[in-house]
C-alpha cells in the first residue's frame, strides 16, 4: 500500500480544486435545501405523514449527493485520467493498482461524506432539522448506497471511450435518476405512473432506505432496498473489474 497516504491527499486536493465538482458535491444540495426550505418551511405536513419538508428532503438529498459523485464525478475523473495519460504514467511506477483504487474510492467517499455533513448542518442550523434515527445505522445506509453507486460509476468509466463520453453517459443516466427517484422531488408529490417507474431506478432504493433509517426505521423492514443495492454493488464490482482499463 506504499503511496496510499500521499495519493489520497493529492486526489482530495485535486477534487476540491475542480470548481464544478466541488460545487455540485458540497454546495448544490445545501443550496437546494435553503431554497425549498425558505419556500415551504419545515412545518409538519400531512403529505409526509406529519413531518416537515426539510425533514424529508435531507435524507433524500443525501441520495442526490451520492448519485452526483457516483455517476458524474467518478466517470469523468476516471475516464479523463485514462484519456490524458495520467493513469499510464502511474502504471510506469511501482504503485499497485489496488492502492490506486483504494485511494480513489476513499476520496470519493470522503467528499460525499463532507457534502452530506454540510447538508445536515444547513438543515440543523437553518431549519431545526429533526432526526429520530440512529447515527450509526444511517451511516451504514449511506455506505451501502455510496458503495453501489461508486461501483456503477466505475462501470460507466470503463464503458466510456473518453472523458467527454463519460460525462455525457453519466449525466444521461444521472438526471432521470435524480428527478424520478424521489431524490429531488419527494415521491409523494409525483404522479402514480412515475412512482411505479421509480421502482426500477436503483437510486429510489437509496432514497427509501435513507428516509426510513432517518426516522428510526429498522434494517429488517428494508429487505427489498438492501437486496437491490447489494445486487447493484456486486454486479457493478464484477463488471467494472472486467472493463477497467489503464489506457
Amino acid at each position: 500500500m506504499r503511496g496510499l497516504g500521499k495519493l489520497t491527499l493529492y486526489n482530495l486536493k485535486l477534487y476540491l480544486r475542480e470548481p464544478m465538482a466541488s460545487f455540485f458535491t458540497l454546495l448544490y444540495a445545501p443550496m437546494m435545501l435553503v431554497l425549498f426550505g425558505s419556500i415551504y418551511g419545515n412545518e409538519p405536513s400531512p403529505m409526509f405523514g406529519g413531518r416537515g419538508t426539510v425533514d424529508v428532503s435531507v435524507p433524500a438529498y443525501i441520495a442526490l449527493v451520492i448519485v452526483t459523485v457516483g455517476l458524474i464525478s467518478i466517470p469523468i475523473g476516471t475516464a479523463s485520467r485514462r484519456e490524458t495519460g495520467v493513469l499510464r504514467r502511474f502504471r510506469a511506477t511501482p504503485l499497485r493498482p489496488l492502492t490506486y483504487l483504494v485511494a480513489d474510492v476513499a476520496v470519493y467517499f470522503a467528499v460525499t461524506a463532507l457534502g452530506v455533513l454540510l447538508l445536515v448542518a444547513t438543515g440543523k442550523i437553518g431549519f431545526h432539522l429533526k432526526f429520530q434515527g440512529n447515527v450509526l445505522s444511517v451511516a451504514l445506509g449511506f455506505i451501502l448506497g455510496m458503495s453501489a453507486f461508486t461501483a456503477l460509476g466505475y462501470v460507466v468509466a470503463g464503458l466510456s471511450p473518453s472523458g467527454r463520453a463519460a460525462q455525457a453517459i453519466g449525466m444521461f443516466v444521472a438526471f432521470p435518476f435524480m428527478f424520478l427517484s424521489g431524490a429531488t422531488v419527494p415521491l409523494e408529490a409525483l404522479p402514480a405512473g412515475v412512482r411505479s417507474v421509480a421502482q426500477f431506478i436503483p437510486l429510489t432504493h437509496v432514497v427509501t432506505l435513507l428516509r426510513g433509517l432517518w426516522t428510526g426505521g429498522s434494517w429488517g423492514s428494508f429487505g427489498k432496498e438492501i437486496a437491490v443495492l447489494v445486487g447493484v454493488l456486486v454486479v457493478g464490482v464484477a463488471v467494472s473489474a472486467q472493463t477497467f482499463r489503464w489506457e
Partner: peptide
Amino acid sequence: RERIGVQLQQAALPDRL
C-alpha cells in the same frame, strides 16, 4: 519499475497538480 526511470511519449500529470 522501482529501479528504472520512465518518461513516456504519451502521458500526463493531473492538470491542477
